[in-house]
Every structure is written in C-alpha cells, then in structure tokens.
C-alpha cells in the first residue's frame, strides 16, 4: 500500500492563528491537492438550520483519500461522522447546508447533487433494502440507473456481482427478499449494490456495527478485496478504533464536528498526540487485560452549537488549561503524515 499523506501533501504551517481558515484547516491545501487523491475534501462545513440561527454540525474538514486507500473516520457517537458521509454523498436533508469544496478525481462535486461516482454502504444491512422487493430487483435497478444495463445482460451482471461479493447461490439469492438473508449476507448485497455503479469512492458508514465479530471480519476482508480489485477509495466510518487498527491506511479522529487528529493507525496507537485520541485508545478493551473492561471517557460529545467553542474537547480534557478555553488550538505537525489539533500536542 502506498504511504498515505496526511491532511495535506506538504504538511501544515505551524503559525496557524493568522486567519480563520488556516486555524481550522490548512488553507494552502485547497489550491494544491485537488488532483492528488481520488477524493479531496476542503473546508467541508455542514450547517444545521437554514435561515436565522445556524449551528455547525461538521466544521472545516479537509482531507484526501487516494485510489485504493482506506481511510477510517472514528469518533464517539454524535461526533458528525454520518453527517460527513451524507455531505460527501450529496444527501443532506433540506435543513442542512454544506459549504466548502469536494473534488472527486479532480472534478468538483456540485452542491446538493448525488454523486454518481460515489456509493454508500450503511449500518443496517436489512433495513437499507426495500422489504417488498427482491435482491434481484435492487441490483437490476441500480445497473439500469447507473450503467444503463438492462434485461438479460443486467441479470447476468447482477449474478456476477453477487458471486463477486461471496454469495454462494447467487441465482437463488436474486429471487429472495432481504429478510430471507442474514445480516452479513445482506451487507454483501449492500456492497454488491455499491459496486454495481462502478464508483470510485465508497463511503461505508459503520457497515459492520450490527454484525457479529466473525461476520465483521468477513465483511472487512471483502471491503479490502474490492478496494484492491476496483481501486476504490474507501472512507470507513466506525466507533471502533480497534477494528481499524489493522485495516485502515490512515485514521481521522473526529470530535464534536471537527477533525482532531490524523495519521496512520501506528502513529495514533503508538503516539497519540491529541488527548481525545489517547482517551479513545485507553478506552479500548485490551486483550488479556483487566477482563477486557471498557473504560469509557467520562462525559459526552457536545451537541452542535453547544459546548466549548475553541477546543471542543476542553470540558472533558484532563490537560485543559486557560489557553484551551480561550484560543482555538492550531494544527500541529508531528510528522508529515501525523497531525494533531491541540495546544499541547507538541508536548
């Protein structure tokens, strides 16, 4: 796997208090990295509430995902991971608004349009399929819509896709309804549906959270396989830092709608620089540890528009001081691939 770059190709300036945008994310990235990756996210912000008061749900995210790269997006519940996915997909509800730029393969994804190059896999595998239509219906529909393949050709292609994602009797599966398959099998169907449109980007929003561990590993293997085969860029959302440690090329940690740290799994596990990342890692159940007890971080992610304004983590952080409550933390470059946004990240 190619070594992944961080948020930005050339690292981040440390004198990042000069302007709002450089405070939130490295501004010079916007000019530079457009064609570098398959997906480029620049200053992605999602506002809730259209007129009058609007509060940011997601704030100034900037990152790249290259071809055949899997980037994990982690963070506690409510940190804005799903909203980020929906914003990239172009599927925000009407009362949410996005600003910032999204580029896919160098071309800008326009506001409010579902990107045909992007596919999504969801958390609830059975619930994301129409309960009164067969698996075959779903596959043939997307083949017709995205690829203009119809009739016998569509049938053959659908069967092939099902085989590709590991369904043993694809012809039979075509005639079945979602509830007749297990969660894991439905998730394979979900992945087949995503692949059917030949996307260049796959957004997987907790695709394994509702599955048992064995199935979870199988789905992860499948995602790794399709990433290699199709050269897909994958944004993989999860609560579970442990799950991504072996699978992802790079990890983005999100908290309260903001990116707080980004780096390889190794960077993060061996040298977490943001206290939130450190807390997430500390809360992981340890193999052979004290009975795998999950120590959770006290407190909760502040809802949009509430909580500390500068460092969003300040009210839960053990290292917080006056600076943290008064000045927005800058991005600190630990190494070109490893960035953290904390006043005390440099130690």
């Amino acid at each position: 796997m190619s070594a992944s770059t961080g948020i930005c190709e050339s690292g981040v300036k440390l004198d990042s208090t000069e302007s709002q945008s450089s405070k939130d994310s490295p501004a010079h990235c916007a000019q530079k990295a457009v064609t570098a990756g398959s997906l480029s996210v620049r200053n992605l912000t999602v506002l809730l509430g259209k007129n009058g008061r609007s509060v940011p749900i997601v704030q100034s995210l900037s990152f790249d995902i290259k071809r055949a790269e899997m980037v994990a997006l982690v963070g506690e519940s409510g940190s804005g991971k799903s909203v980020t996915c929906r914003a990239i997909m172009g599927l925000l509800p009407g009362y949410m608004q996005r600003t910032g730029e999204l580029f896919l393969g160098g071309a800008e994804i326009p506001q409010g349009r579902v990107s045909a190059q992007t596919a999504m896999v969801f958390q609830d595998p059975v619930g994301t399929l129409n309960p009164v239509r067969t698996i075959g219906f779903h596959l043939k529909e997307v083949l017709s819509l995205r690829r203009s393949i119809r009739g016998a050709l569509a049938y053959a292609r659908a069967v092939e896709l099902l085989r590709q994602v590991g369904l043993r009797e694809p012809e039979r599966a075509m005639t079945l309804y979602p509830h007749q398959l297990s969660g894991g099998m439905n998730q394979r169907v979900g992945i087949a549906l995503a692949l059917a449109g030949n996307p260049s980007l796959l957004l997987a929003d907790e695709p394994t959270s509702s599955l048992d561990t064995t199935t979870q590993a199988q789905i992860m293997d499948l995602l790794a396989k399709v990433r290699e085969e199709a050269g897909l860029a994958i944004l993989f959302v999860t609560h579970d830092l442990g799950l991504v440690s072996q699978r992802a090329d790079r990890v983005i940690v999100m908290y309260g709608g903001q990116m707080v740290e980004s780096g390889t799994p190794r960077d993060l596990f061996e040298n977490p620089r943001h206290p939130y990342t450190a807390a997430l890692i500390a809360s992981l159940p340890r193999v052979g540890g004290e009975h795998g007890q999950l120590r959770s971080i006290p407190g909760k992610v502040p809802p949009p528009g509430e909580g500390p304004a500068f460092c969003r983590f300040a009210d839960r952080c053990s290292r917080a001081d006056e600076t943290c409550h008064a000045i927005a933390p800058p991005w600190i470059t630990i190494d070109p691939n490893h960035l953290a946004r904390c006043h005390h990240a440099a130690r």
Binding site: M89, L91, Q123, G127, T128, L129, L145, G197
Partner: peptide
C-alpha cells in the same frame, strides 16, 4: 426508513 436514503444514494429518481 434507511432503504429510502439508500435508494437515493444509488441515484434512484424520486418518481421511482
């Protein structure tokens, strides 16, 4: 329901 969102993500037109 999630299957509506998923259908929209696959580009299914509103009428369909």
């Amino acid at each position: 329901q999630p299957y509506i969102l998923a259908a929209r993500a696959r580009g299914t037109p509103r009428s369909r």
